[in-house]
Amino acid sequence: MATKRMKAVTGGDKPLFIPFITAGDPSSAATIDIALTLQKAGASILELGIPYSDPLADGPTIQAASKRALKHGMSLEKALKLVPQMRERGLTIPVIIFTYVNPLMQYGEKRIVEEAANYGIDGFIVPDLPYEESGDFAELCNQFNLSLVLLVAPTSKERIVKIAERSQGFLYCVSSLGVTGARAQFDPRVYEFLQTVRKASTIPTAVGFGISTPEQASKMRQHSDGVVVGSALVSKIGELEQRLLDENKRSEALLEIERLVSSLAESEDQ
Rank of each mutant, 00 (worst) to 15 (best):
P55S: 04
L82W: 01
G208D: 02
G120N: 02
A69H: 00
G123L: 00
V174E: 04
I50D: 04
S167L: 12
K67H: 10
V227E: 11
S53M: 06
M1K: 13
F124Q: 12
T196H: 10
V161R: 10
S263T: 13
C173D: 05
S224V: 03
S235V: 07
A65P: 12
D33H: 00
A69W: 00
T37K: 03
R183T: 08
V261Q: 10
M220V: 03
D33M: 01
A43C: 04
D225M: 09
I112T: 03
A8K: 15
V152D: 03
A30T: 00
L48D: 06
V113E: 08
V229A: 01
Y172D: 01
K219M: 15
V228D: 02
I203K: 02
I93F: 02
Q39V: 10
D122C: 02
G12Y: 11
A217D: 08
F170L: 05
D225W: 05
L56V: 14
A65D: 09
I163Q: 05
T37D: 04
G230S: 05
L16Q: 06
Y52C: 10
I160A: 12
F144A: 15
I32N: 00
P127E: 09
K71N: 14
Y119G: 07
E115W: 04
A79D: 10
A138K: 06
T37V: 09
F137K: 10
A200N: 03
M1W: 09
L104W: 01
V207N: 00
I34Q: 00
R250D: 03
K78T: 01
R198V: 11
N142R: 14
S53H: 09
L36S: 00
V152W: 03
S235I: 09
T155Y: 09
M1V: 14
S235C: 13
D122Y: 03
S167E: 10
V149Y: 11
L91T: 01
T155H: 07
E192S: 15
Q270V: 13
L244P: 02
L91H: 00
K78E: 04
R243M: 10
K199R: 15
V161F: 09
S263N: 15
P103L: 08
T196V: 15
K157G: 15
S267R: 12
E215K: 09
S134A: 11
K78R: 08
G135K: 15
V261T: 11
K81G: 02
P214N: 06
V83C: 00
A29I: 07
I211C: 06
P188R: 12
K81V: 05
T61H: 08
A164T: 10
I34M: 01
R198T: 15
E165I: 07
V197N: 06
L56Q: 11
K110G: 04
K162I: 01
L91C: 01
